[in-house]
Amino acid sequence: MSASFGLQLSMQQVSKQYGKKTVLQGVQLDISPGEFVAVVGRSGCGKSTLLRLISGLEPPTAGEILVDHERISGIHPDIRVMFQESRLLPWLKVIDNVAIGLGKEERDKAVSALHRVGLETRARDWPSVLSGGQRQRVALARALASDPRMLLLDEPLGALDALTRIEMQQLIEEIWSIQKFTAMLVTHDVSEAIALADRVILIENGQIAFEVPVNLPRPRERDHHFVRLERLVLDKILKSHANGVSSQLPSSQWTLLPR
């Protein structure tokens, strides 16, 4: 795959309102091809909304979303979304679920995607007999089957137990590092964000309140750098109107970009 297989994303002064309620207000964000960005923030701050705008499921009220320098309209064929619930069709066998977005001649792609998530032996099973973690892996395979250039993940591991979560995190990181798509992960779990992302973004009051690059080598270990970064992001989320974070900033490993 070429170096810039992933999509480049640019959001310019993007706002979203539902009726009178402003959810996002002038969001400015650039994501480079192949970058892995994690989005954190309090419940209801607009993380899912941000993802829905990028996926094209909903139009922004104002501003522009550019994908590879082109303004998106509707759903982009190279962007796939993975949700918190697997959203598998219960009446289709696992393999047919994975193949849902593919043409008739592309079934081998579904087989290979299922192989990548390690579930090739369950191809002929009904989704309802799978565990929650397995269902999410099938959903991941479905998202990967068409070789998307950008993957949006809306708390895909939120409902899984701790052990399955860690396995899934490793799987996602592994596949991402091979396929080099651009990834955007919404999560409640700060340590998940730091384990996976190149950059963590905090949304607050409809805006990107701060962002921090994670320059730790992969695969990441929970060393003191990791823990300090985790602490930092957590503090930021907890203090809803924090200011003067820069004073706590250890400058060597990462930089903070307060807005």
Binding site: I75, P77, R87, I100, G101, R142
Partner: peptide, 12 residues
């Protein structure tokens, strides 16, 4: 409606 939204993402 979640399934229909999923189908939209896959551009069925």
């Amino acid at each position: 409606s979640d399934l229909i939204e999923m189908a939209k993402v896959y551009r069925l």
